[in-house]
Design a protein around this nucleic acid. Structure first.
Length: 248
DNA sequence: CGAGTTTGACCGGCGC
DNA sequence: GCGCCGGTCAAACTCG
């Protein structure tokens, strides 16, 4: 594993500026010099960051490839029999005699803030809750949602916290949306920007998207004080630059 | 006041 | 036929 993953602070963006002009310069000249120096510096740093992002993206992509390969090697868990009182909540409820799994369903596993008890999985669609039940297999209540974005949309969603790990929400989607996605370019799952969840048969997660990984990355970055300070400094610099009229 | 949420009641399928 | 269970309904309630 790359040391950057083990040490989040090394991910911080060093956008510090170069040497300042001598104190004898006129203040106006100094401001212009500062601005141009900082802007050029920031541009260079941004290019550097872009390169870094490319490398990180490749790294994440490789990790996901490995993950998918490893997941494929894990033997499938035996299907639960009706008599069993499974404690796992991340499986389709026992609909006795009904199709198993139900047609056109997909599951999404979302790590979520345990403090949040709202069972909300924001996936870019608008949902209306129509019921909640405590099921036999799971001490956590299961919430039932219908897509309310379009009145005729048949899609339903069940959300329940995992019995094994209460910080993981298991969202089960049934059906396909017969309308367009919400207009926002990005949607949020567990507070993390991401693409809309995939729909389809059986459990699936897009290899290009792993909410837990993304959440970890965001968590690392936001916890890093130098990253925050750098962002704040950069933004304030840009604001100052825009406010100050540049002489010809 | 309207839209969304909560929650107890009800329904239907299935095993015994 | 009865009881269990997941899923749904709908009245009451909450909130902006």
């Amino acid at each position: 594993m790359d040391s950057r993953w083990a040490n989040p602070s090394s991910l911080s963006l060093d956008l510090g500026v170069g040497p300042l002009p001598s104190p004898g310069q006129a203040s106006r000249e100094r401001e212009v010099f500062l601005a141009s120096t900082r802007f050029g510096d920031i541009e260079a740093k941004l290019n550097q960051i872009s390169e870094e992002n490319k490398r990180l993206s490749e790294m994440v992509s490789n990790m996901l490839t490995d993950y998918v390969a490893l997941s494929g090697g894990v033997p499938a868990l035996p299907k639960r029999k009706r008599i069993e009182t499974s404690t796992s909540g991340d499986e389709e409820p026992c609909k006795r005699g009904r199709a198993y799994p139900p047609p056109n369903t997909s599951k999404a596993y979302v790590r979520f803030d345990p403090k949040n008890t709202g069972l909300v999985v924001k996936d870019g669609y608008q949902w209306r809750k129509y019921g909640q039940k405590v099921t036999r297999d799971n001490p956590f209540p299961r919430a039932y949602f219908r897509c309310s974005f379009a009145p005729s949309c048949p899609v339903k969603k069940k959300v329940q916290r995992s019995a094994e790990d209460g910080s993981i929400l298991v969202a089960t989607y049934e059906g396909e949306h017969n309308h367009k996605h919400l207009p926002q370019d990005e949607v949020y799952v567990g507070g993390i920007p991401c693409r809309p969840l995939q729909q389809g048969f059986g459990e699936q997660e897009s290899p290009g998207f792993h909410p837990i990984l993304v959440e970890q990355m965001v968590s690392w970055l936001t916890k890093d004080p130098s990253f925050k300070a750098t962002i704040v400094a950069t933004i304030s610099d840009r604001l100052l630059l825009q406010q100050a009229p540049v002489p010809n």
